[in-house]
Amino acid sequence: MTAAPARPPQAAPRRRVPLRLLLVAGVVLLTVGVLAVAGLQGSLVYYRTTSELLADPALQGERVRLGGLVVRGTVETTADGVRFELTDGVQDVPVVNTGQPRGVFQEGQGAVVEGVLGADGVFRSDVLLVKHDNEYRPPEDGTGRPAEDRG
């Protein structure tokens, strides 16, 4: 802290400050809150479902995130990545991802990919994230120790 000049004695009425301050803070936070809610509900939906993507032709050719469950039996490793289908239970979308999946990617689990839906109906992505649910349970074999348990 540096030296400050001596302040004049405080003669100002002290009651008005908090009210004004509260009003300003209230208006600011309300604005931020309204913007946040509007923004998050509109443009910041983290991903679209397969049905939403297919129902909105404006999204074709746009870079979007697409989320869904990885359809069992569709996962294939390709030369430069992985190919699979995503579903929301109604519509399936074939996905070709560049790059091997990280995270706990597996069939029947959730995944979110980032890329572009082509005119051929194939979604080409280069970001693959895994979405897991909020249920926690031990591995199926009942020992509480999965086979690869080390690390």
């Binding site: 946040a36 910041l44 995270g103 706990v104 970001v127």
Partner: peptide, 16 residues
Amino acid sequence: RPVWGAWWVWDPRLVT
């Protein structure tokens, strides 16, 4: 990082 495959995502929970 090990589960989703990313250190950070622009997800509403993380941003808020």
